[in-house]
Simulated scan of single mutants.
Amino acid sequence: MKKNIETIAIHGSMREHMGENDTIVPGIEMSTIYEHRKGVHKEGDRKYTRLSNPNRDQLENVIKELESGEHCAAFSSGMAAISSVFQAIESGAHVLVPDDVYFGTRKLVWEFAERWNLDVDFIDMTDLDVVQSSLKENTKFIWIETPSNPRLMITDVVEVSKLAKSKGAIVAVDNTWPTPYNMRPLELGADVVVHSTTKYLGGHSDILGGAVITKGNKELFEKIRTVQVVQGAVSSPQDSWLLSRSIRSFPYRMRAHNENARKVASFLSKHPKVKVVYYPGLESHPGHKIAKAQMDDFGGMISFLVEGGADTAIKIVAASEMIKAATSLGGIESIWEHRKSSEGESSPTPDNLIRLSVGLEHADDIIKDLELALS
């Protein structure tokens, strides 16, 4: 029986019944080692917690189900997850990355692509003609963010996946911002989905984690799994347990994030001190039609440009009472930041851009605080 996402989120992280009087909530398995009673490790036995752990298995199972995938590897951070995918690509490959991309991914490419012998081009991934003309004979990997970070640009996952397949290239989608509540890239033709589970899946700004999910291509997943267990950036038992617990409520949190963000984006789009609002749920957004076709809703992230420059944007961010100035996103509390300050001078982000993670406070209270800060 096909289950809805709310049911998967609650029951996908439960372990199989151990008996007639089993616990409803799984325990945390902290042991790093396991006994081999016959003196030797047998196939299928647990051996060492870096290789496998019951709590990590539960977490990987629920994330895999949420994304309609076949395999999942849970990491200690989103960047560890992203890094594992790039390291799984064959040496000498040509790689395409969006020119508007999470700065951590950009920095990873800047620092390590040459060492991994990857030839990377940053392109406008929203323009299919640009994508097609950028493909080379050795293009083996295309990285997608949609909506992108921080300008919420929209890439057509279906069409880019078709172009990639014409070259035998792998498509990976960072689905951290939409989450599987709003978009499931593997159902749209992508090969790999990546998450910073720190964000919406964790949802409370108190857990660090990442995940990689694949559908098919067992060989690719085994390469990712090898990076995970050999390099050791695995999700700890406690973080895995906490994430599984948080995921049980995540569909209902996302529903509220979506609803609040729609109201806040509408407010900002009419404010005289706001020049541009980047939110794909607005009909004025250039990627609105594609986003509507591939997403069930538009998420809780908004970026906007204010009249003035960096100093003006920084003063606005500092003037709020309820919305806190902080980096990261996806928590129950609303936070925002002058994004260029967080990324540094080498960032291509506009000086007057503010990135807002819309939380679960009452929408009227969020809007009142925005009115205060913008006044």
Results as ranks from 00 to 15, higher is better:
Asn117Ile: 05
Ile207Gly: 14
Leu59His: 13
Glu29Asp: 13
Glu259Cys: 14
Ala310Leu: 11
Lys292Glu: 13
Ser91Leu: 11
Met183Asp: 03
Arg37Val: 15
Lys215Asp: 01
Gly287Asn: 08
Ala325Lys: 15
Gln132Leu: 11
Pro147Glu: 02
Ser84Gln: 03
Met295Gly: 05
Met295Trp: 14
Asp99Gly: 12
Ile8Glu: 10
Met18Asp: 11
Ile142Leu: 14
Lys275Trp: 07
Ile316Gly: 09
Ile24Cys: 13
Arg106His: 09
Val227His: 14
Met183Thr: 10
Glu222Ala: 09
Glu159Tyr: 09
Ser303Lys: 02
Met14Val: 10
Met322Ala: 15
Val85Tyr: 05
Leu152Asp: 10
Ala169Cys: 04
Ile323Thr: 07
Glu60Ala: 04
Leu59Ile: 01
Ile154Arg: 07
Gln87Ile: 11
Gly299Leu: 00
Val158Gln: 14
Asp297Thr: 01
Asp364Pro: 12
Ile170Leu: 13
Ile5Pro: 04
Gly78Asn: 09
Ile8His: 10
Ile366Trp: 00
Val193Ala: 12
Ile290Asn: 15
Lys270Tyr: 02
Val274Trp: 09
Asn4Cys: 13
Ser328Ile: 11
Ala363Cys: 10
Glu90Thr: 14
Leu282Asn: 12
Ala172Trp: 01
Gly331Lys: 05
Ser134Gly: 01
Leu188Asp: 06
Asp364Thr: 08
Asp156Ala: 05
Ile367Asn: 10
Val171Leu: 06
Glu29Thr: 13
Ile314Leu: 06
His11Asn: 13
Trp116Pro: 10
Ile170His: 03
Leu282Lys: 08
Met18Val: 13
His271Leu: 00
Arg184Leu: 08
Thr327Ile: 11
Glu29Met: 12
Ser303Leu: 06
Ile8Val: 08
Ser133Trp: 03
Leu188Ser: 07
Ile10Ser: 10
Gln238Ala: 13
Ser148Cys: 11
Pro251Met: 03
Gly78Lys: 10
Leu118Ser: 03
Ile28Pro: 04
Leu152Gly: 05
Arg106Val: 15
Trp241Lys: 14
Gly331Thr: 14
Ser284Arg: 06
Ser334Glu: 00
Gly232Asp: 03
Ile144Ser: 02
Leu220Thr: 02
Met30Gln: 12
Asn149Ile: 14
Ile89Glu: 03
Asp206Gln: 08
Leu282Trp: 06
Ala81Asp: 04
Glu65Gln: 14
Leu374Gln: 08
Lys218His: 07
Thr197Lys: 05
Ser235Val: 13
Ile366Arg: 04
Lys136Tyr: 01
Glu219Asp: 13
Ile354Val: 02
Ser84Thr: 06
Leu220Asn: 02
Ala113Glu: 02
Glu114Ser: 12
Leu353Ala: 04
Phe298Tyr: 09
Arg15Trp: 06
Ala325Leu: 07
Gly69Pro: 04
Val306Asn: 07
Asp127Arg: 05
Val171Glu: 00
Leu220Tyr: 01
Arg355His: 12
His36Asp: 07
Asp129Met: 05
Ala373Tyr: 00
Glu16Thr: 14
Asp45Leu: 03
Lys140Leu: 09
Glu6Ala: 13
Thr7Cys: 11
Gly209Glu: 00
His36Ile: 02
Lys3Pro: 07
Asp296Lys: 12
Ser236Arg: 12
Gly189Arg: 02
Gln132Asp: 12
Ala265Phe: 01
Ser13Arg: 11
Ser249Ala: 11
